[in-house]
Design a protein around this nucleic acid. Structure first.
Ligand SMILES: [Mn+2]
Ligand SMILES: [Mn+2]
Ligand SMILES: [Zn+2]
Ligand SMILES: [Zn+2]
Lengths: 138, 138
DNA sequence: GCTTGACTTAGACAAAGTCTATTGTAGGAT
DNA sequence: ATCCTACAATAGACTTTGTCTAAGTCAAGC
């Protein structure tokens, strides 16, 4: 069921009811929830879970490399369980819907040496913005 | 002197000491200051300028299209007077230094139709991350 | 030099996130 | 099975970044 939960087992991770529900809430494709959204969904399964624990648990999952932090807007960070397949994001400017996308080619080759200012570049992050089909037809 | 200030004149923009100082502080190349940094530098020239006025003025400049908001980290928004030459950003992960960069080609062509989920894409934002020469030699 | 609507200000308020002191518990040891 | 203890969970104070409001100030046209 929870692929993320499976990945977290056998890492010496002490299993608690709180950690289990956070992992369950983050299961699925194109999942990019804020900490507060994770908390709201976790409370539905385990009413006494605290906000601090959700933040702590998400932070640990990020440290373990099993969850990614995504910042597609200037509001809250979003947590993404799709940590093992490199990807970028497509965001609807109207409703905020987020899709995982996989551009072809390496965007790094598009940056000429004269535009690198002597930096050693280790990562490129691409965000596509537009209007989703639902918002376009509304 | 202040190219930004020149651009803002003759737009029916009521000129005040506060607005002049904010525009002066934002003059230059590769400028990407936070609102608080703008405020600190503005206070040095005009001690009584308030935080609210800096936020208001930056917001108006953004609305006029003369300043861009840049979000290269999850902390404060940064304000960029280079609003008329499309560009992307190269960020040092260690010290936060930000350079304006101009990749060749259109990153949109790298996203196949099958990866567009029916969206109409209007904008692409690219952030290159790495280590600047100063941090690399330290 | 008036008048007036636009601008500025201080401080309250809000959202997102961090930190701390205290209490609880998972899981190994006995 | 029970005990122990290091690790985890909790409430709430605190911080950072940003917005809002009500009252005072001023640039610019007449
Ligand atoms: Mn994703
Ligand atoms: Mn820039
Ligand atoms: Zn939409
Ligand atoms: Zn650096």
């Amino acid at each position: 069921m929870s692929d993320l939960l499976e990945r977290l087992r056998g890492r010496g991770w002490r299993m608690t009811a709180q950690r289990r529900v956070v992992a369950e809430v983050l299961d699925g494709d194109h999942i990019h929830l804020t900490a507060d959204e994770v908390h709201a969904r976790a409370v539905a399964k385990l009413p006494e879970i605290s906000r601090a624990t959700v933040y702590n648990t998400l932070g640990e999952m990020v440290s373990l490399g099993e969850v990614l932090e995504v910042s597609t807007d200037r509001r809250a960070k979003r947590y993404d369980p799709n940590a093992h397949r490199p990807h970028h994001h497509l965001v609807c400017a109207r409703c905020g819907a987020i899709r995982d996308v996989h551009p072809v080619g390496d965007p790094l080759t598009d940056l000429p040496d004269s535009e690198r200012f002597g930096f050693t570049i280790s990562d490129v992050e691409v965000t596509y913005r537009g209007t989703c089909p639902t918002c376009a037809s509304a």
